[in-house]
Each structure stands twice: as structure tokens, then as C-alpha cells.
């Protein structure tokens, strides 16, 4: 999930009877699957939670460009370079769609980005892991984008109109990312050398668990889920989505001829699902707190880009003002 542990600020779910008429009308609208639009009345907690969730999602898209930027100058063929460049462009675009949706709620993009730069706002934990080989570009596309898509497909039905529409657009564009990633791995596994095959397996070993962590804490440790589900800004629980991801990914893993670094991973006939081992939640919370292997690099790179580009943005504004003045005089 691209947004993890989004704080709602709500301690207990209200029933319809406890709500003031305005809030009740709002909740009934949501219950009837009618989208909330920017100008509709909404509870402040709904607005603030959405701003946190959408901005976190947007930050993830933007920070997610960095591991790819780490390899785009070293892509091994012209075709792969072009594909990766197109993907990076999409990530930036998706970040912008999301910031645009967030701004309809009255939030300021620069302020929200500054929160990420000073550690107050989060982005997906997955991007705090290093990409150490070219195979990671394949594994990120397949596993990380794959996990994101599982989450985002559901979010197309989210209650807030602009967010939902951004998701529809993103899902449409992102389907190629996962296929591209998987195809890269498949090529290496089926036509590559032993060194390449080892590279793929190593990449899966490193990225498997962090991908499962993307869905956020297990349901019993997800204190904000009930409110988010009632508001339909979250439509399925973390564990449900994680299970769906594992179920759809394991056959793809087998087709690759690779294994997952999980001795407990096996098909459970009775449940009709794959069982899998316990996630290292300590690691997850540490990474989220800022203690992951790349947190510092990712954040400082983003902060530096915006700070060292200030003179460029100012120049563009100064120029636009001068041009406006010239037009006014003429």
C-alpha cells in the first residue's frame, strides 16, 4: 500500500444517530456510494485524513522515482532505458495527479511537501530500501508496483471524487509497469546467464518482505482502519489486500523459477489461500520511523532538489511578472 498507517485523529466510530444532521447527511451519502466532491460539506477529520493519505501517496510516487533514477543512467540496452524513462515519467505524473487531487481539499502542495522533507509526513516504507542491482528494477516493477496496484484498484472506488478519479487514471497507466518489471525478470531467468539468474533471486530475496510490508500493519494493529473504512477512503483491510497480493504473486514467482525467502509459504487447501510467515514488524516500524537503510538519502535528495531549484522557480515568476507588466502597458 502506498499509504501506510494514516492517522484519522478519530478515537471512536460514531453511529448515524449520534451525528449532527450535516454529518449524518454526509455519512449517508457515502453509504449510498455517492462521491464526495471538493465543494461538498465534509467533517474536518475526513478532510485532514484525506490530505494525509493522498499526500503520503503522492510523496511515495515522487520518492519512488529515486531508486529508478539510481539505475536509469545504467540501463543495459536502449530499449530498457526507454522503458524505464517512460516509467519514471509516469511516477512523476502520478505524483502530480495526486497532489492535484489533494489541492482540491484546500491543502497547499509546497507545505505538504515540506512536511515530508522535515520528516513529519511519510511515504511508503519500500523506497527506503536500496536498489543494488539491475534486477531490482524488474523486481520493483513486479512486486512493488504489483502491491501498489492491488491497493489502488480498490481505491478507484474511494469516496472522495477527485482521489477516485486520480486512481482510475493511475491504474490505467500503471498496468504496464508491473508487466514491464515481470517481463524483465522473465527474460533474465529464461534467456540469461547464471549470474543474471542469481541476480534475480537475490533481488527477490531482498524485496519480498518489504513488499508485503507495503500493505501496512496487520488488522489488529491498525487503529485507524475502522474510521477510514466507514468513510470509504479505505475499502479493504490491510490483511485482506496482502493476502490477495500473495495469492496472485506466488504462481508468477513459480513461473519465474524463483523462490520466496519464506519457509512457511505454502498453499492452504482449506482456506483456499497461501499461508505465509510472520512479517518482521520491528523492521517495518523502524523504517517508518526514519531508520531504514535509505531514509536519509531519499529525503535529503528531495529536499536538496527543491531548495537548490528555488532560484529557478523565482526567476520564472519574475519573468512572468515582467511579461505581464509589458502586456499591461501595451
Amino acid at each position: 500500500m502506498y499509504a501506510q498507517l494514516v492517522e484519522t485523529g478519530v478515537k471512536r466510530l460514531k453511529s448515524l444517530d449520534e451525528m449532527e444532521p450535516q454529518e449524518r447527511a454526509f455519512q449517508e451519502r457515502i453509504d449510498a456510494e455517492i462521491k464526495i466532491e471538493a465543494k461538498n460539506w465534509m467533517p474536518d477529520a475526513y478532510r485532514q485524513t484525506l490530505i494525509r493519505q493522498i499526500s503520503q501517496h503522492a510523496h511515495s510516487e515522487i520518492v519512488g522515482m529515486l531508486p529508478e533514477g539510481n539505475w536509469v543512467t545504467r540501463a543495459p540496452s536502449l530499449k530498457r532505458k526507454l522503458q524505464l524513462m517512460a516509467k519514471i515519467q509516469d511516477e512523476a505524473g502520478h505524483g502530480l495527479y495526486l497532489y492535484s487531487a489533494m489541492e482540491t481539499l484546500g491543502a497547499d502542495r509546497d507545505e505538504e511537501i515540506a512536511k515530508m522533507h522535515n520528516g513529519k509526513a511519510k511515504y511508503s516504507s519500500i523506497f527506503n530500501y536500496p536498489t543494488l542491482s539491475w534486477a531490482d528494477m524488474g523486481a520493483v516493477g513486479w512486486l512493488v508496483d504489483g502491491a501498489a496496484i492491488v491497493n489502488q484498484v480498490v481505491l478507484q472506488r474511494t469516496s472522495y471524487g477527485p482521489y477516485s478519479r486520480a486512481m482510475v487514471r493511475i491504474c490505467k497507466e500503471e498496468s504496464f509497469h508491473q508487466r514491464q518489471g515481470y517481463q524483465m525478470l522473465l527474460t533474465m531467468m529464461q534467456e540469461g546467464t547464471q549470474a543474471q539468474k542469481d541476480m534475480v533471486q537475490d533481488s527477490i530475496n531482498r524485496l519480498w518482505w518489504p513488499s508485503l510490508m507495503m500493505f501496512g500493519p496487520s488488522d489488529e494493529h491498525s487503529p485507524n482502519s475502522a474510521q477510514s473504512m466507514a468513510w470509504k477512503i479505505k475499502r479493504q483491510s490491510n490483511d485482506e489486500l496482502r493476502q490477495r497480493f500473495v495469492d496472485q504473486t506466488v504462481p508468477q514467482l513459480e513461473l519465474l523459477g524463483c523462490t520466496a525467502p519464506d519457509p512457511d509459504l505454502k498453499w492452504n487447501e482449506e482456506r483456499g489461500h497461501y499461508d505465509f510467515g510472520e512479517i518482521q514488524w520491528d523492521e517495518f516500524y523502524e523504517v517508518l520511523k526514519g531508520n531504514g537503510p535509505c531514509n536519509q538519502e531519499r529525503v535529503s535528495k528531495r529536499r536538496n532538489a527543491i531548495e537548490s531549484g528555488a532560484w529557478v522557480r523565482e526567476a520564472a515568476v519574475a519573468y512572468a511578472r515582467k511579461q505581464q507588466l509589458k502586456r499591461d502597458v501595451a
Partner: peptide, 18 residues
């Protein structure tokens, strides 16, 4: 490509890559 993640505005990230 070297500009990826370093551009002075998000809009420019997209444009440079394009």
C-alpha cells in the same frame, strides 16, 4: 537522465525525462 529526482520543480522532472 542524470536530472532524475533533482529537477527544480516536479513539473520539470516530467519535462526533462520527456
Amino acid at each position: 537522465c542524470e536530472w532524475c529526482g533533482n529537477a527544480p520543480a516536479l513539473e520539470e522532472e516530467l519535462a526533462l525525462m520527456n
